[in-house]
């Protein structure tokens, strides 16, 4: 153990900084489930996503749907249910905002 500790003293720390370089974040994998992107034109208004959303984050909105991201649990079920692939999961993860009203506008 002592040798292990002393050896580690001269190795690089394993900690990964949030910004690996200035303006450069740790890359996220391809399948990472982040913010939902919704193609309103492709949506046919079947409302199946509302039925399968486990968090109740999707509501009907003039024969289309709208998302409240503050309730979203990023499971990706809606994008799988959607028959027209109008809902896609992006890898965008920085969605922190200061007030609740800003979430709705996203």
């Amino acid at each position: 153990m002592i040798w292990e500790a002393l050896k580690s003293l001269f190795k690089k720390p394993l900690t990964v900084q949030y910004l690996t370089k200035p303006d450069e974040k740790v890359p996220v994998p391809e399948r990472y489930r982040g913010k939902i992107s919704y193609n309103r034109d492709a949506c046919i208004g079947c409302l199946l996503c509302i039925r399968t959303c486990p968090a109740g984050a999707i509501t009907a909105d003039e024969r289309k749907v709208s998302f409240s991201l503050d309730r979203c649990i990023f499971c990706g079920q809606c994008s799988e249910t959607c028959p027209r692939k109008a809902i896609e999961i992006t890898s965008k993860f920085e969605i922190v905002v200061y007030t609740k009203s800003e979430i709705a506008s996203q």
Partner: peptide, 21 residues
Amino acid sequence: FEEITGNRIHHAMNVIGGVRW
């Protein structure tokens, strides 16, 4: 896990009748 399933903890890997990814 993050690479294979898209999330570190809640993998959402299982669907009825198989797996998702």
